[in-house]
Amino acid sequence: MNADFLIVGQGIAGSVLAWTLDQRGCSVILADDPGLPSASAVAAGIVNPLTGRKLVRTWNADELFPFLHQFYRSIEQQLGVQFFHSKTIYRPFRSDDERKTYQELTADPAVRPYVTESPEDASYSQWINNPFGGLSVAQAGWVDLNEFVRLIKGYFIQKNQYYEGRVEQTDLVVGDTSAAWKGITFNRVIFCDGVQAQQNPLFNWLPFNPVKGQILTALVDGYSIPDIVNQGVFILPVRPGLIRIGATYSWHDLDWEISDDGREYLEAKVRAVLKIPYEIVNQQAGIRPSTKDRRPFVGLHKGKPVAGIFGGMGTKGVSLAPYLAEQFARHLLDGEELDSEANISRCVSL
């Protein structure tokens, strides 16, 4: 039996790439080990074009954001489902000085398309501490990642192109022109397995810089703000009365365990923003596959070009994956060049 691609790992990266290649007419086997932890299973799935106190525009935002909105909507239409929620992000100011600083930042022509001029501050004030007002970030939203991954899994199961289990390196033979695994010959094998790539002898030389993150889930009676709120911590409305609160960032203690420190940090942050009582009902931890230069890892192995990688997207996988998957597909199928900032060729000297 022959197939075009073996995709190893079905988080956000593997799901998006498998779908993209499938829609181009390729035969794709999608493999995932449910026994391995997944950052996508924990992540809030927020897409945000402007981040941090300085309203830093996401890398390649002008291309990424129109593309991701179209990409997720097209899957919803094709499968008759909903998992993508287009939202505004409301950012209350901490002080009058911050308000003035943000007004200067939003005058930048590169930032202006992502900002709503006059949010209705009063509509938030029943629940959110915003005495200095705030600004609203447009073209944002969130992907229900557990639902999205489940739907993509079901799609490939229905096509009999899904394998649930670990792809052992000892079972995978990567040759000069093809790869073989479980009696199937593949033109290419692409690893989309997050931080597990650090244990892959083909790609363990890449400069990953993993980041642990924790989020909380809470009940909040009467909370009906439809938008995401962000002020040093995000408050994501999953449905009326249920929110997610996040996230922590730690480059130490890189395990998948929740911690009291993480919960205390997030609760201290959210108490400064949220006016009304809440009840924590869940806490989760994950390790994001971030990189040293904060750019993704996309491309083929220089010595074994049958093997490729699609990952290293850190906290922005939901935003980056659709556009980069399309670019990678054009590289693999049409010979087009990859973005030099994402291409792993930038790291070959390592």
Rank of each mutant, 00 (worst) to 15 (best):
A3G: 03
F5R: 10
G9T: 02
G9A: 07
G11C: 11
G11P: 08
S15M: 01
L17N: 03
L17H: 01
W19N: 06
D22V: 10
Q23A: 11
Q23M: 04
C26V: 07
V28L: 04
I29H: 13
A31D: 00
D33R: 00
S38I: 00
A44H: 01
A44L: 06
G45L: 13
G45Y: 01
V47G: 01
V47S: 12
N48Y: 07
P49C: 05
L50G: 04
T51K: 05
G52A: 10
G52M: 08
P66E: 00
P66G: 11
F67L: 11
Q70L: 04
F71G: 05
Y72E: 05
R73L: 08
Q78F: 05
G80Q: 08
Q82L: 03
R91G: 08
R94H: 13
S95P: 03
D96N: 14
D97C: 10
V111Y: 04
R112T: 10
Y114W: 07
V115K: 00
E117R: 11
S118I: 11
P119V: 13
E120T: 10
D121I: 00
S123G: 02
Q126V: 07
W127L: 12
L135P: 03
S136G: 13
A138N: 07
A140Y: 05
W142A: 02
W142L: 13
V143T: 00
D144A: 11
D144M: 07
D144W: 02
K153I: 00
Q158M: 06
Q158E: 14
N160E: 15
Y163V: 04
L172C: 02
L172V: 06
T177L: 07
I190R: 06
G194P: 15
Q196V: 06
A197I: 09
A197S: 14
Q199S: 15
N200P: 05
W205E: 10
L206S: 12
L206A: 03
P207M: 08
P207H: 03
K212G: 04
T217G: 06
A218P: 10
V220L: 08
I225G: 10
P226E: 10
P226D: 14
V229N: 02
V233P: 06
I235E: 00
I235T: 04
P237T: 09
R239Q: 14
P240S: 09
G241P: 10
L242H: 13
W251Q: 12
I258Y: 10
D260C: 12
E267A: 09
A268Y: 02
K269Q: 15
K269C: 14
V270A: 11
A272S: 15
V273G: 01
V273D: 09
P277S: 00
E279D: 06
I280M: 12
I287R: 02
T291Q: 05
R294L: 07
F297L: 13
V298I: 12
V298M: 02
G299F: 00
K304D: 01
F310L: 05
G314N: 10
G314Q: 05
K316D: 12
K316V: 09
V318T: 08
P322C: 11
A325G: 06
F328V: 01
D334R: 04
D334F: 04
G335A: 11
E336A: 15
E336F: 03
S340Y: 13
E341R: 15
E341P: 10
S345T: 15
C347T: 08
L350Q: 13
